[in-house]
Each structure stands twice: as C-alpha cells, then as structure tokens.
Design a protein around this nucleic acid. Structure first.
Lengths: 357, 357
DNA sequence: CGCTCCTATGAATACGCATTCACCGTCATA
DNA sequence: TATGACGGTGAATGCGTATTCATAGGAGCG
C-alpha cells in the first residue's frame, strides 16, 4: 500500500452522508448550527471512512493550531521535567498539545524561536533558557504571546511568571538562623538567569539582616547540576583556609542533593549533624529517605495556571500581555536536612504525613 | 495592536522583491531552480518584512508536517526523560520537532492516537505506554508509521525497537552468580508491558540454568516506581517466613534505587555487604555516589537511531515497515552495588573512569 | 544568422477546511 | 391566507504555500 494512502477528506464524508462539505465541517464544530439528526448521519459516515478532521488544514482558516511551544533548557533538573509534565497535562485537557523545543542550557533560544514561528504556535512558554529581547518582540509582532516561566527580563515588555525567589531565599536563611547555624555557605550555578541570582540575594540579605557578618558567608559557583554541586562542595569543604560552614544552601534541590551526597560519601560528614542543608524547588526526589530535604516549595500547579491565563489561549483577540511580572510566593517545607527547631515540629510532622501519603 | 497583526505572506515578500510568489517559495526551498541573485534579493525582502514561511500552509501541499509525535507514559522514570531528550535533540537536528503526548502510565494510548491523527504527524514513537492493535492499523492505514520503543506486541504488525531484555536480565543473573549470591529476590512492577516481563524471564531462566532452585528466588510486585520498589522492599525483607535474600534485582534502575534506599534507611542493611543490588537501564542517576549501581546499559542513542531509521521520515514513499522487531543487546556495567569479582575488576575500573569523566 | 536547448520566472491550481452568504422550507403570528 | 422569522443547508470563497505547466530570454551550436 502506498504511504499516503487513504486519507479521506470532508468531501468524501459529505458524499457518503449525502450532504455538502460545509455540513461535515459543522458536524465537527461544537456549537454550530446543524440538526442533530444530520450530525449523527455525518458522524456515522465519518466513522465508516475513518475520517479524522485535518487540523492542519483547519488552522489555515482559523489561524489557531492548538499547539503551544515549550522551550526548555534543562531536562536534567527534575524540576523542569515536572514543569513540562504539568504543562502537557493541562494543555491536553484543553485539547491542545505541547511542541517541545530543547535547547542547550544557557544558550540563547533565538534559533528555537525562529523555528517555532514557522509552526504558527498559539503561544510560547520559555523555561530554563535565555532569550534575547529581539526575539520577544518578534513573537509579539506576529501576535504570538510568550511567557517566561521562572525567569524575567527586568524592564522588558516580556511577561513572566515566577516563584518569588528573593523571598524564597530568605525563607531558607530564616530556617538556618532558627536552627542556630553560624557559618553559611551557598552553592549556586552560573547566574545568567535571574532565578539563582534572586535566591542568592534573598538568602544573603536575610542573613545580613539577621546580624550575620559578610565574612560568615561563602559563595561557591559550579555547574548548575547535581554533579556541579557535588564537585563544588568537595572543593568548598577541602579548602582549609576558612572555617567549615555548618549550613549549606543549594540554590535548587538537585544541587542540594549533590551537595549532600558529596558531604556524606566523599567527605565523611553527616547531614544535618555536621552540616545542615537547604534546597529550593521541592522536587519529589528531595523527599526521598536519604535526603529529606528542607526546601522551598514552588507551587508548580499555580504557576502553570498563571502562565496559561496570561497566554489567553482561548481568546486570541485579547491584546498580547506585556511586561507582566507575576511573582508567586513559595512555602518552606520542613524536613530533616535542617534540624527542626521546636517551634516548627508540628509543621514538620505535617509535611512528613503529606509526603508519606 | 491587534493580536493577529502583521504576519506577512510570501505574496508580500514577492511584491517587495519585485518577483512572483512562486519565486519566493523557491527561494526558501533548498535545491529548487532559482538564480542565486534572485534568491538573495528575495531573502533580503523577507528579512525586511520579518517573513517566516508558514509551515502549516506548506504542509497542506507537501503532506509533511515535520512533526513527530512522541507518546510517553512515564516521565517519573528518568530513563524515559533521557529518551525524550534524545529524540528531541536528534529530530531538531533534522529540522523536525517533537509533539508530546503524555498519557497515564499503563493506560491505553488510544485517545492520544486519535488526537495525533488530527495533527497529521509524520511519524509516531510510543514508549512506556500501552496501545491497542486497532490503533496501529489506524495509523498504518493513514500512512503514518509508528514505532514502539522498548515495547513490542508479539505477532502484530507493529514495529518496535527495544533492548534485548531477556538477555539483559540474564546478565544481571550472571553478575549475581559470579559474585556468589545464594538467595535471590527480584522486584518488578506490573507486567503489562513486555519489558519487565522479559527481564524477569531472562533473569530467572539464567539462574535456573546456573543450578539455582526455584525456591531460592522470590518475586515481589510493586508499583513501577521508586516509591513502589521502596515499599515492596520493606515488605520483602520484613517477611520473616523466608530466608533473607542476599541479591536483589530491581527490574529498572529507578526501582533499584528505591530498593537500595529502603534497605539502608528503613531496614538498616548495607549494600552490597548484606545485600547486593542490580538494576537495568543505566540512568545517570544510578551512577551517583550513594548508588553506584551495577546495571545493564540500554544503548539509547543506538536505539533512537534504529527507531528513526525505521520511521523513514526522509522518504515517505517507502512502504510502512510492519512487524519489525529489532532487539538490541545491552551491556553490563560493573559498579559497586554488586561486589566486583576479581575477574571483572578491570572492567569495573574502566566504567568508573568513564563515569568520572 | 537561425535554430535548438536550457534556465529562470510567472500564472494558475490544488491542498482540506471554516465561514460567509444566500436560499429554502417551516412554523407561528396577524 | 399572507407575512415574517428562523433554523438548516449548500455554493462559493479564502487561508498561505508548493508545484505544474507554459513562456521568455539567453547561450550554444552549426
């Protein structure tokens, strides 16, 4: 059989059902004017012919593809996998699909944008990746809304949804202070994106506010990954020129996990007894028995909701939203990678119950 | 500005460049008959107008969308995330994109198929999900090639690429035997797919061949996930009615990791001293310091290559490949979750070096 | 110089569907 | 019975591009 064999069209169905092609179209368009009886007749004919409407063809007239592009720069961090999964589920429930564009972490996504423009996607979500403002206006000019997820470009007219990273970083600082830490370290990746930078800033500022001296805080950079944090931690602890920290903030969970494993399996230190560790994101992996990571939970579902609402997928006549910056507060989840101060015992138990469900 | 504002067409470009629309089309079609000078002129005009060819419209005539659907049933297992990532990278390099369809694990993907038919995708890859044979013929009838990744339906005319799971299971059995294990346990998820079943079969058969008695092998089922294996392991070890196994095969790496953590953090056992553990997949997570998982490596790159070559994306005139079953041998990677017998020391050191690169 | 051959281009058409507009029959109303 | 009003249908058109076919012009040859 030839490859492009029998793909029946609305005309074929119309012929079989004894109606016109317009009627077939209406039979598949909810809310259009057609007699129930006729619709049934058409659907039966369609079934016989294995007819499925060609959404490519209909996009041509409706100017809607029901496709949303997701540009994603880091699938090695489980957090972004969860983000992808959440978007996919939500959009599928709306009858839309995700067209995925993977880019190298920290590389510009400009090329991806050029490609997705061809596909006439209804909207774009960009996460864990960089983007030039030129590309944003290119999308806007063409009527394609774009939302940055967990990223923002201050002063640009790009819209974004993000966790309030400054406030979140402060939460970890507070947890450390409440647990009685004295010397602080933080491990972060490159600061190209605003995400890490904000967390670092919130963390450091809160510590300084709490009376900690600058000299009590060490900042280490590594590749923004489990391995990067693993190696950076080893370097940090082996550096005998400074006092060993007793609190370590991994700027995201996957890095905190790398740090914990380095501490335990390379450096022979105990967590949290010798060193308490805090993370950020609350990925399910951080809840596992070896980590029990105290962290800031990013409310993914809510952030995805916000993102979709900004995209206005349902009514394309809305003007494209510009310059929106919607920071959403995260919540501190107490587990045992930071010793739980008495005041927070109840909260920690609640989190534990929730995890075990 | 209105939403669907200024999206210029090939006619606009033609007008600006002083040529006809056909010439614009040719300017963007590699290998078509057009004078270099003219092409340059057209491209300049296109640039001025921010013109990007509308691939939706061109699909209508070419009958190619350059979109490949990927149905994926389990993003919680990092293995499938790597699979997704690999497909995405490969296809993007060819100028194609992945349209993602997430389905609930172990649910039928029939609905997803109905949706992707609308999008006129050029091909379909299905992984970690179930599918009825009816849907396969539906795709085939419409000229859409579909390949099952790590899954096959014996006797059907579906094509598939998979790791040779029977042989792989046997490799773990051999490793256990070489390490001197006496009592064996295996933890597996539901056996709906062929993947787990084959691994179990290869494992058990190889043990029996090696003189192990049936009574020395315990099989435990749990949800096919980290947590499922974690809980199943606890149940297994706490069952005092039988001797404690000294070797445990997690039917995939993520389950093996769950098992290891349960052994260490709930049951107070040491790995590999009290219990050796083997996995399957060789996900990067299993290489981490706490796990050092001895496992069977699935050659993802090669499997993806095979899959793409079966899809024949480049020449749609090829007849749709039916009934292909391409098993690919995996390779045992020695790490330290199984004590390395002297004969394999060299191999293990090599793996270690490779990991640390 | 006249012819053919070939290359570069333009005009026209098809792709599959949504949508507009006109039309027809029916029913309720005056 | 005549008049609208309205629900349902069909014919025709447009969406943006690829492709076919015809043509103009130039190069090469005898």
């Amino acid at each position: 059989m030839a490859r492009k064999s029998s793909r029946s069209t609305s005309f074929d169905v119309a012929a079989l059902a004894g109606v016109s092609q317009s009627v077939v179209s209406r039979a598949f368009t909810p809310g259009s004017r057609i007699a129930d009886e006729t619709r049934t007749k058409v659907l039966e004919a369609a079934l016989k012919l294995n007819y499925v409407p060609n959404s490519i063809a209909s996009s041509l007239t409706t100017k809607r593809t029901n496709i949303v592009a997701l540009i994603i720069g880091n699938l090695d961090n489980p957090f972004y996998v969860h983000v992808l999964h959440t978007f996919s589920r939500r959009l599928q429930a709306q009858g839309r699909q995700v067209l995925i564009f993977t880019v190298e972490p920290n590389s510009e996504s400009d090329e991806a944008i050029m490609h997705l423009l061809k596909y006439q996607v209804d909207g774009v979500v960009l996460t864990a990746a960089q983007l030039s403002t030129r590309m944003i206006s290119l999308c806007h000019d063409r009527g394609i809304p774009i939302v940055l997820f967990n990223r923002y470009i201050p002063g640009s007219d790009a819209s974004g949804v993000r966790c309030d990273n400054v406030a979140g970083g402060a939460l970890i600082a507070e947890a450390f202070l409440a647990a009685g830490a004295q010397n602080f370290a933080l491990i972060t990746g490159d600061l190209k994106g605003t995400t890490s930078g904000d967390r670092v800033r919130g963390f450091v500022e809160r510590l300084l506010d709490g009376g900690v001296k600058r000299s009590q805080i060490v900042e280490v950079h590594g590749h923004s990954s489990y391995e990067g944090a693993f190696n950076a931690t080893i370097k940090l602890i082996r550096d005998k020129s400074r006092v060993r920290p007793d609190a370590l903030f991994g700027v995201n969970d996957i890095m905190a996990m790398g740090a914990i494993d380095a501490l335990r399996h390379r450096l022979g230190l105990r967590v949290p007894e010798d060193l308490m560790v805090g993370g950020f994101d609350d990925i399910p992996e951080g809840r596992r028995a070896p980590y029990q990571l105290t962290t800031v939970r990013q409310p993914i579902e809510q952030m995805v909701d916000e993102t979709l609402s900004i995209l206005h997928l349902d009514d394309p006549t809305e003007p494209i939203p510009r310059g929106i910056d919607r920071p959403i507060k995260g919540r501190l989840i107490w587990r045992s990678s930071i010793p739980v101060p008495p005041a927070y015992r109840g909260e920690a138990d609640a989190a534990k119950n929730e995890d075990e469900r």
